[in-house]
Amino acid sequence: MSARTSFANWPCSIARTLDVVGDAWTPLVLREAFYGSRRFDEFQGELRIARNTLTDRLRRLVEAGLLEKRLYETEPPRYEYLLTEQGRDLFPVLAAMAHWGDRWLAGPEGPPITLHHKACGHDGHAEVVCSACGEPMRADDTVARLGPGYPDRLKSRPDVLRRFAPE
């Protein structure tokens, strides 16, 4: 079995995020946590995931700080898994994935799940909007630029300059 590639030190927040949630089961475990699952058997029952795989994903999510493991029964010891602030901050990512899937993969009967926004009382979907002006951000009107955390040692490389040239 080959070692898992780590993206933890890449100068890219997408790669770093994938280092934490970038397998098929982890986003589904998080989805179930957003749906209200807290206990091992709830996750296992909803996902039909192998127990050893679920144990590994829960452990990794706790280590990464997305879930908190809390003892709820002492004899025998049993734990529940609660989303942390860091874990709850992934909700927009999962909502955006659901919206994409609803648009491109749902059948003619429509989306399998809808998101209900309790604040306004309507069903809705995720939108990525500019934090400065509130307008939607789309691929054709958004460019990536070097940020303050990009490693100095890489900034002068021709391939980096070409990819992130100011427009």
Score class of each variant (00 low, 15 high):
L54D: 00
D140S: 15
L66Q: 01
C133V: 01
V62G: 02
G101V: 04
I113E: 10
G36W: 08
D152G: 10
A132R: 15
T53E: 03
Y35E: 14
R31C: 06
R103K: 11
E68Q: 08
R78I: 09
L161Q: 12
L90Q: 07
T84H: 12
E46R: 12
I49C: 04
V129C: 07
V143E: 11
A165Y: 11
F7A: 04
L58N: 02
A50G: 15
D123Q: 09
Y35K: 15
P111G: 09
G65A: 10
A95R: 03
F34L: 03
A126F: 05
A50R: 12
Y150N: 07
L28I: 06
L67I: 08
A33D: 03
E109F: 05
E46D: 14
S6N: 00
D140I: 08
L61C: 09
E32R: 00
D102I: 02
P11D: 08
E135R: 15
A64K: 13
R39M: 03
F34A: 00
C120N: 14
L94R: 06
G124D: 05
G65K: 05
A96E: 01
G65F: 14
T142M: 14
A33Y: 05
I113H: 06
G87C: 03
R4P: 06
T114D: 12
L30G: 02
E46L: 10
N52S: 15
M97Y: 02
E73A: 13
G36K: 05
A165R: 13
E109D: 15
A126T: 03
L18D: 04
R16S: 02
D41C: 05
K69A: 13
A15C: 07
D141G: 14
R88P: 08
F7M: 08
T5E: 13
G45D: 09
L71I: 09
D140Q: 12
F164Y: 11
R4K: 10
L28G: 00
K155V: 04
T84G: 07
A132N: 12
L90W: 01
G22N: 03
V128Q: 00
R60M: 12
E63D: 13
Y79A: 10
Q86C: 06
Y79M: 06
A119F: 12
L61Q: 00
A15H: 05
T74V: 15
G147Q: 01
R39L: 03
G65N: 07
L105N: 07
V129W: 01
F7K: 11
R103P: 00
K118A: 15
P92T: 04
D140K: 15
R48W: 01
L61M: 11
A98Q: 09
R31N: 00
V129M: 01
D159Y: 15
C130Q: 13
I14H: 14
R163N: 08
E63Q: 14
